Simulated scan of single mutants.
Amino acid sequence: MSTEIKWQKSSFSEGGAQCVEIAEHNDAILMRESDDPNAVTTTSRTKFAAFIAGVKAGEFDHFTN
């Protein structure tokens, strides 16, 4: 039985193009760029949660300027 991977884009993506997409699969978090869907990065839920906490705290804001 195969499980279909359901990718999710941010509602902040510019028209849905060239954004990061996230999915969950087998207790892991998958990430890819919409313009290169075959290049997938995998991480744990714990590491992803730490990253999201850092984003919410503004730790990565300097990358957007």
Rank of each mutant, 00 (worst) to 15 (best):
T43M: 14
A49L: 09
S11Y: 01
F48G: 00
G58N: 10
P37Q: 07
F12L: 12
A39M: 12
F63H: 13
S11G: 02
I22G: 04
S34Q: 07
F60G: 04
K56H: 10
Q18T: 06
A23E: 01
A50Q: 05
A28I: 02
K6H: 10
M1W: 03
M1I: 13
A23H: 10
F63T: 10
A49E: 08
P37H: 01
T64S: 08
A50T: 03
T64Y: 12
A28Y: 03
R45D: 08
H25C: 10
E33Y: 08
C19Q: 06
T46M: 08
G15H: 05
A17Y: 06
N38E: 15
A49Y: 02
I52C: 08
S34D: 04
G15F: 03
I52F: 13
A53H: 05
T43Q: 13
E4L: 12
I22M: 09
D27E: 12
T42I: 14
H25Q: 10
S10K: 09
T42S: 12
A28K: 14
L30K: 05
N38H: 13
G16V: 06
V55L: 15
M1C: 11
F51I: 09
D27R: 15
T46P: 06
G15C: 02
Q18N: 12
S10E: 10
T46F: 15
S2T: 07
G15R: 04
H25F: 13
L30T: 09
W7I: 01
V55A: 12
K47H: 11
K47G: 13
S10C: 11
T3D: 07
S2A: 05
S2C: 01
N65D: 09
E33N: 12
A53K: 06
K9S: 06
S34R: 02
